[in-house]
Amino acid sequence: MKKQALLIIDMQKDLCYDKRRHKKVVKLLPHLQTAIQHADENGFAIYYICFELKPDDIQFKRYGDQYCIEGTPGAEIIDELQPVKGTIIKKRKHSAFFETELDDLLKQSKIDKIYMTGMQTQLCIMTTAADASFRGYDVSVIADCVLSTREKNKTWALNWIDKHVGKVITLDEFCSGSV
């Protein structure tokens, strides 16, 4: 039996309460809460991946707005997912592995299978899935538990993940333990 982890990516106030995607977050939350509950009840390690950025981060110039600045309420995990049921990992870049302790923690716990949830599918989910795959983890993305502001980006990203670095599964498959 593989040791397993659930990653919940970027479910932070600045990103989730943004009006461009808040409706999608509201629809996503019941699925995500089910996934977290299943992981918690079945002994998965759970990691919440959160951006923690400096006010002058170069990403802000590119995307034109500021978000998840360290020490601000906007960088906190959304109320709907409180209390958190796992470890919070702070990151500066898209991949959850980039200059973070995630890889070490997963290896210390001998985890070799990762399920991914959160957002955005075409950015942080996709790069983290690739990074995890390159580091030797068995990666699955739960399609019902990820979102993109634009649906076509989600579809494209899931196809890419399925083709190159991991599996795309449903929440039912995750909860049934069939994959």
């Binding site: 870049k93 200059e99 790069t127 983290t128 990074d131």
Partner: peptide, 9 residues
């Protein structure tokens, strides 16, 4: 530069 994970490979 962007932290995309491909630098692993």
């Amino acid at each position: 530069r962007e932290g995309l994970g491909f630098e692993q490979k």
